[in-house]
Design a protein around this nucleic acid. Structure first.
Length: 530
DNA sequence: ATCGGCTCGCGCAA
DNA sequence: TGCGCGAAGCCGAT
């Protein structure tokens, strides 16, 4: 079932406290769905897993106060991946929906959720975790809690442009709530300028989104009010971490990382470190993968919703130092990050496929689809970092080991996957698969757009035509040598190779649900042409 | 070391 | 309708 963007209708002014901008909201249920009798307001938390700096939670709490009922928070754990093999992509790595939750992601997700549970409990706000049987049942399961467990009169959710979230909310829950006459409001609690407000269509690049956001940026960069706790006494559900862990059926071969602990507090510590060390040189050194302590490394917490980027924007503004570093940080954290949401929101059904590329890019990749490739690697050769390119292998191993690849290397890494794959379609899916499996900040719009920028020219322009790439921007080893000390970067990941190989073997051996992936027999290395 | 051309499409001037 | 301009890079000329 495909997702359609309907014209955005904002919540009526009478529902909004003076600090809540109508543009942050949209009404998902149809006109005439008015609050009837009910005993609570429910906040369906999904993308923005935090108790502070969360416009959806704040507004839901205010609505509960207006109606003199308690607030309940409901979160749906993502149901285990179902790979029934019914799709026609047998030769491609699994798409996000078929990808098992890794321990790396699951631990971070549950850790953050547990923090929120405790923080809310202190304020007498209960958090109830739903366990839907399948992807198709998420909306139904959450609505069951909304309607029968909590008898809600109003539902507020946060917003994500990821397809699965939109299916759960817009396609599955909306009809049930309309039938039950429970109005369903959504808040873009993730972006500073809400995605549907910044522009009303997909943008071709940063240069068209930037002026639109800058024009209204200060209007939306409001400080957050404090969250007030429930005054009603309500039952507190238990937080059963063990049960949730077994529900997720995690892929244990991708281990958690030590450097990033889940939760708002841990994330803010990382940010304090960055604002003391990296911010002042961010504009000059963020593209040098050898430099330590330049990048903010905030994306795990931002993407999992543990921290609001708006909080970081407010903090760097209050710091009022390092104008150039701050400008570069805001450019990446606001313009480029919100550009990703823009792409997914306005192309909800094809943001992860070649179909979403611009005409020039599709045609050009098609024209060069049968060009002879100098190297073609199998998925396992790539996954284990066993290519001829030590720089690429190091980047891959950084991702496998640390759950985070340097931003500049992500571009080079994905471009080489295009260069070394049989087809652009396969390259795209392989890069998305590896990104979503290993990056702690994967499974997110920024990942789809980052990979899309590299492989199919999303938000980029055409460049000098060449083999395999066509007009897609090319990157190579020599360019990296010009920019940073390649040997130094490579040396950092020596010895990580065997670990990666073991992890991959474990994954593929233990997962009987996983459909078979391209085997290394596909691998070939051809001699250079000309 | 630094610069300009590469190539495309938006947005503005006409 | 035509033209200026940007853009998370490469490459060759200076």
């Amino acid at each position: 079932m495909s997702i359609n963007n309907k014209p955005v209708k904002h919540a009526a002014d009478s529902l909004l406290p003076d600090w809540m901008l109508a543009n942050r909201t949209r009404v998902l249920t149809s006109e005439g769905t008015e609050p009837k009798e009910g005993q609570s307001v429910v906040y369906w938390m999904q993308r923005d897993v935090r108790s502070v700096d969360n416009w959806a939670l704040l507004w839901a709490r205010d609505l509960a106060m207006q109606h003199d009922v308690p607030l309940h928070v409901v979160y749906a754990l993502p149901p285990p991946a179902s790979s029934d093999g019914s799709d026609n992509d047998r030769d491609l790595p699994p798409a996000l929906i078929q990808l098992p939750m890794t321990k790396r992601h699951g631990d971070f997700l549950l850790g953050g959720l547990e923090c929120v549970y405790k923080e809310l409990k202190e304020m007498k706000i209960p958090l109830y975790v739903c366990l839907p049987d399948s992807h198709e049942k998420v909306g139904e399961t959450v609505c069951e809690a909304i309607q029968h467990k909590y008898k809600a009169k109003i539902v507020v959710s946060d917003f994500s442009p990821i397809r699965e979230y939109r299916q759960w909310m817009e396609l599955q829950a909306v009809p049930i709530l309309e039938e039950a006459k429970v109005p369903f409001y959504q808040v873009d609690a993730h972006n500073i300028v809400p995605v549907w407000t910044a522009t009303d269509k997909r943008q071709v690049g940063a240069r068209t989104l930037r002026p639109r956001i800058h024009k209204v940026y200060n209007d939306y960069l409001q400080d957050y009010p404090d969250l007030k706790g429930n005054s009603h006494s309500v039952d507190q559900p238990k937080f059963d971490r063990v049960e949730y862990e077994s529900f997720l059926q995690m892929d244990e071969s991708v281990e958690s990382v030590d450097w990033a602990q889940p939760g708002t507090e841990a994330g803010m510590k990382q940010f304090e470190f960055f604002s003391k060390n990296g911010l002042k040189i961010f504009h000059e050194q963020r593209n040098d993968p050898v430099q330590k302590h330049v990048c903010s490394d905030m994306s795990p917490w931002i993407n999992h919703g543990h921290i609001s980027f708006q909080r970081l924007a407010l903090n760097v503004k209050a710091l009022n130092k390092h104008a150039n570093g701050t400008a570069a940080f805001i450019e990446e954290g606001v313009i480029r990050r919100e550009l990703s949401d823009n792409m997914l929101y306005y192309s909800p059904n094809d943001y992860d496929s070649l179909e979403t590329a611009a005409g020039w890019a599709r045609e050009s990749l098609q024209l060069h689809a049968s060009d002879e490739r100098e190297f073609v690697y199998s998925l396992s050769e790539l996954e284990e970092g066993r290519t001829h390119d030590d720089l690429w292998n190091a980047a891959q191993l950084q991702m496998v080991r640390d759950g985070k690849m340097h931003g500049f290397m992500r571009m080079y890494w994905a471009k080489k996957i295009l260069e070394w794959s049989e087809s652009p379609v396969g390259a795209l899916r392989t890069a998305q698969y590896l990104n979503d499996k290993y990056e702690l900040d994967g499974r997110d719009p920024n990942g789809f757009v980052g990979v899309g920028w590299s492989i199919m020219g999303i938000h980029d322009q055409g460049w000098k035509e060449r083999e395999v790439f066509g007009k897609i921007r090319y990157m190579n080893y020599n360019g990296c040598k010009r920019k940073f000390k390649v040997e130094e970067y490579v040396a950092q990941y020596k010895g990580a190779a065997e670990n990666a190989a073991n992890a991959v073997e474990e994954t593929n051996g233990s997962s009987n649900k996983r459909k078979s992936l391209p085997s290394s027999s596909n691998s070939k290395q051809k001699t250079a042409r000309k």
